[in-house]
Write a protein that binds this DNA or RNA. Structure first.
Lengths: 225, 225
DNA sequence: ACCTGAACACCGTTCAAGT
DNA sequence: ACCTGAACACCGTTCAAGT
């Protein structure tokens, strides 16, 4: 065939097909040859549009970051950083849950992925706008990402196996029902995420008061709304 | 050569060599052929000791979990769950930091890895012993792992690139100094981890009080977003 | 039981050749 | 510019054959 008058491929078409393949069969199922076959071309054709396979997977990951809602950070009241962080965390988690197989790529950090950077930028900007010192704002963006991607990657339940024989009670006296965890999978995951997110936000709120009232001698109890 | 009178290989020797290879050159550097070459045997020999490559990497990951200190959970005072959790988190992080390339395997959860399960068991048992309801103890084990492995995997700083051109200020108004982050890598990582760990423990302490005083009149802690 | 070489069905990537 | 087939240097894993 050689060169067609209208390109058969585009970055978008490649990313779309790769995303579908990742979602359907996982990261390992994506080889340049298989991906090319799905697109009706030969393997090397992909290299006209991406430098290598990693760049394709980065683009797939970034397409997920695009789905993360950031509108809460443009809220009128910058004081409401807690609510914004909370809503953003849920949106982030939902985006990852919809494409669990690409999470390992996302969990490594934004790298040069534009949408990933946009997310980091929005969080940092909103926290600074809310009165957090820049150094703390950086940390908050990082630690929230740690928690959210960590939870998406290694959900506690999927981490156990649905097979009682794997857990000899003599070895693990407290894990008697561990094999049941696989069953209660989603339940445990969501519970752990909720509990962790609340703890994180509660804890940050305590720290915020230290920064918001740095001159005060004695720390007051938080005021009740 | 065929079968030697004394085995050339053992699971331990294989794991040791694989660990060294992972540490020195990363996960991708480990192929069955290369690993076998390091050990002075041919590739297929490994299959006499492990069912497949994944099992080898699981064993490498488990060797890291063995390094995690759990002695703090045997402390005399079970009330001191907070201090124990804190010290354990530091020990866990240190173990991961010493072998960063294997973290992606560890972050997926304990699976059937004995040492990984021992860790989960110790945390769960200690939290129940400290008075947490079992359901909450499960969640705490999970969420702590989310945070710790998430932080080890996707350290904020390594996630950025040391190249100013990657961050056009028009696109990311708040990330003007993002390229400096790579430089300040360890600093940011450790700060984010510290801040996050403190927030997590502070937040859990608040929740603990809810459970420790369950008979208190109907007034529950205000549910926040 | 434990190692070997040969073999199978794959990989990611490069490159000259075609239009 | 964009696709092709051929080629290179690899993979993980199976298996019959050797001792």
């Amino acid at each position: 065939m050689a060169r067609p008058r209208k390109p058969l491929l585009s970055r978008d078409r490649i990313v779309e097909a790769a995303s579908a393949l990742v979602d359907a069969e996982g990261l390992d199922a994506v080889s340049t040859r298989r991906l090319a076959a799905v697109l009706g071309v030969s393997g090397p054709s992909l290299y006209n549009h991406f430098r290598n396979k990693d760049e394709i997977l980065d683009a797939v990951a970034d397409a997920v970051s695009v789905q993360v809602d950031l509108s809460m950070f443009e809220a009128s009241d910058p004081r409401d950083w807690r609510a914004a962080l909370h809503d953003w965390a849920l949106s982030y988690r939902a985006a990852l849950a919809a494409h669990p197989h690409i999470v390992p790529v996302l969990a490594r950090g934004p790298g040069r992925r534009p949408a990933g950077l946009r997310v980091a930028d929005a969080v940092f900007g909103a926290m600074v706008g809310a009165g957090w010192p820049p150094a703390q704002a950086t940390r908050i963006g990082a630690l929230m990402r740690y928690f959210i991607t960590g939870s998406a990657l290694g959900s506690f339940a999927r981490g156990f196996v649905d097979d009682e024989s794997a857990y000899d009670p003599a070895d693990y006296p407290h894990l008697g029902q561990a094999h049941l965890l696989a069953e209660r999978g989603r339940e445990v995951d969501e519970g752990a995420f909720e509990t962790g997110l609340r703890a994180l936000l509660d804890g940050l709120a305590l720290q915020y008061e230290e920064y918001a009232r740095p001159t005060e001698t004695v720390r007051r109890a938080p005021k009740r709304p």
